[in-house]
Each structure stands twice: as structure tokens, then as C-alpha cells.
Computed example of a mutant assay.
Amino acid sequence: MELEVRHLRALCAIADAGSVRKAALQLGMTQPSLTTQLRRIEAAIGGLLFTRGQTGSRPTPLGHAVLSRARPIVAEMAALVAAARDAAAGIGGARLRLGSVGGRVVTEWLRRIHRRLPETDVTIHIEVSSTTLLQLLATQQLDVAFVHETEGFPLHVPPGIQRRVLATGEPRFVAVAAAHPAARQHVVSLTDLAADSWIVDPTADHEWAAMRRAFTAAGLNPRLVHVRDNATAADLVASGEAVRPCQPTAEPTAGTVIRPLHGDPLTAELSLAIRPGALSACEHDALFTDLEDAYIALARGNPTYRAWLEGQGHPLLMPGPTGPVPLTTRAAASFREDTAQRSAAGG
């Protein structure tokens, strides 16, 4: 028998009530049922937890030891359930539940939100998978989410979820060891890295498929290494064991450099996904502006990305407000509600 939270809750109820009978009433059980459950718990633990007498039930030394561990677990579970219910009901004060893929923009985004909404309880949920974030939106576990969609591989967007486009055609750069021959180049081609192993995160939406497509188009078939841990991936790159794609706003880790890929074979669309009814239109606008400002600041402050933007003559480097950031010449609607047909196509 494996102990569960309900078993720990029963032990705490017996100790607090002082008798199995009173605890059974509190738990909505019959006394025989709770007595049987207690015997099974004691059998699983291997000792008596309570002494029974005419004055009731009292914890034994073993019972006290078990209860000292059980009470924090029961309390934490009760708090978790209460918080989840409050979040689902939208009560408990001003709250903002954000979701995002990982990246440096997250910290900058949060800093702006905290400065603008100092009294709001802001939480952030980080996921590698944009699909997972969209599902959390659809099930009302998040209010908004910053998501990436790999070009050519549409996300499956739940009905009703809207996306406001931040950037189209954002390039993926590549991280290589500082000692790698390609590190001496300002721009690296896939052919330059044909003999290298490429790190891919198997939990990232369509990353493997997009890389395979790019390699096939270049007539290449490099080795792929599945790595989910960023620290391990960074060490593998620094040691020269592998290379890996990265966001253009990323900073190189120790022993590595980041370079653009010739022809930008890997690109993504960035957008803020919104659950209708979660926030007012004004708050949606403000959150998008916070995200946009954070992204622009990072792009302009990153030497490698800035050089790429300068080479493109990109308006992102122009002073003053820029509005949504179209990184390619393709038009990007500021708002769109994905239709069921588009969702089916991405499923």
C-alpha cells in the first residue's frame, strides 16, 4: 500500500479530533471505514500510530514522527487547491497569469509589467512548447502567452484564442564553440556546419522537423542530438561536441559565439496569444506594448542581432515608436482570430 494525501489527511484528522469516531464525522466517513483505513496505514508503515482507549486516540512516538511530516504536506496541498480554485474563479485580488516560451525577453517583459502594475500578482509559466501554452490558455490556466510558431509549421490554435503578431520571420542564429572554425566568420552557412552534430530539443514544437527541412534543402544530413537541458546543451557547444540553433536575442555562454545563418533557413513568427475575456482590451494593448518594448530593447542592444538588422536595413533600428515589428516584407495583421480551418491544418 502506498500512502496518499488522503491517508495523511485522515491521520491528521484523528490526531486533531482525538478519536476515530469524531475524525470519521469530520471526513464524512463511517467509523468502521476509517478504522480499517488506519489499520492499513499502520500496516504499511510498520507500527502503531495511535493508542486507543476510553479517552480517545492519542499519537504514539511513531505517530508524532509521521504527523510532523504529514501536516506540512496536507497544508501545502490544501493551499494549492485553494489557490487553483481562486485562479479559476478569478478572485483573490488583481492577478495576471502569463505564459511564455523561454528567452531573454521574458525578464525584460516582466520588469516592465511589474513597474506598470506594482499591485498586481503576476505569475509566469515557462514552457518549451508553444502548443502547451495555447492549451493552458484554452483551459483558462493562463491569461496571455508569448508563443513562437516555426515558419512552415502552423501551431494548432484552440478555437477562440487570438494572436497579436509581434514579429514575422525572426531568424534563428547558431551557437558554436569559440574555437570552431566557423566562429571566425560573421555569417555561417549550413554547409560550414555539415560535419557537426546539431542539438535539438525534442519537446520544442516542430524544431526537429524545421531543421530537417532546412538540411534537406541544402543537401545535408547532419547528426542530431536530443538534449532537453540548457546547461548541458551549452556545455556541449562550448566543448565543440555540437552546435545548436538559438534565438537572435540570445547571449553567448562561456566559450561560445553566436552567428547568423546564411539565407536565414530557420525563421519563426512571434506573437502574444490572448484568451478572450481574460483582460480588457486596454490591458491587452498595454501587455503587448510591454512585450514589444522589451523585444526592441534586446534587439537593439544585442551586437550580433543589431548587425543582422543593420544588414537588412531594418526599421527596428529607427528611433521613435515602431509599432508591430515586421521582420520580413510579409504583411502581419496586428490581431487575428485563428479559424477552425487553420487550427485543423496545424493539427
Score class of each variant (00 low, 15 high):
167 A>N: 06
126 I>H: 10
219 G>T: 09
140 Q>L: 02
90 G>W: 02
99 G>C: 03
192 D>Y: 02
209 A>K: 14
193 L>F: 05
105 V>H: 13
161 I>E: 07
123 T>Y: 08
203 T>D: 15
165 V>C: 13
158 P>C: 11
123 T>N: 09
184 R>P: 10
186 H>C: 07
164 R>Q: 04
140 Q>F: 06
184 R>N: 15
112 R>K: 09
187 V>K: 05
151 E>I: 03
127 E>Y: 10
184 R>F: 14
174 V>M: 01
96 L>S: 02
165 V>L: 11
111 R>P: 01
125 H>T: 14
183 A>P: 05
163 R>A: 11
143 D>H: 09
132 T>F: 04
93 G>N: 07
174 V>T: 01
97 R>Y: 01
197 S>I: 13
165 V>F: 06
107 T>C: 03
127 E>A: 14
173 F>A: 00
137 L>E: 00
220 L>R: 08
120 T>P: 02
170 E>I: 12
119 E>F: 09
131 T>R: 11
172 R>H: 15
166 L>F: 06
159 P>W: 08
130 S>K: 02
111 R>S: 09
220 L>P: 05
198 W>Q: 00
126 I>E: 13
210 A>W: 02
218 A>W: 00
99 G>A: 04
219 G>S: 11
181 P>A: 07
95 R>S: 09
159 P>D: 14
128 V>Q: 11
128 V>C: 07
92 G>E: 05
185 Q>R: 15
126 I>V: 15
132 T>K: 08
193 L>K: 06
189 S>K: 02
106 V>Y: 01
192 D>E: 11
88 A>E: 11
139 T>C: 09
108 E>R: 10
96 L>F: 04
214 A>T: 03
184 R>V: 15
165 V>Q: 10
132 T>Q: 12
197 S>M: 13
178 A>I: 12
114 H>T: 04
208 W>Y: 15
127 E>V: 06
154 P>L: 00
136 L>H: 12
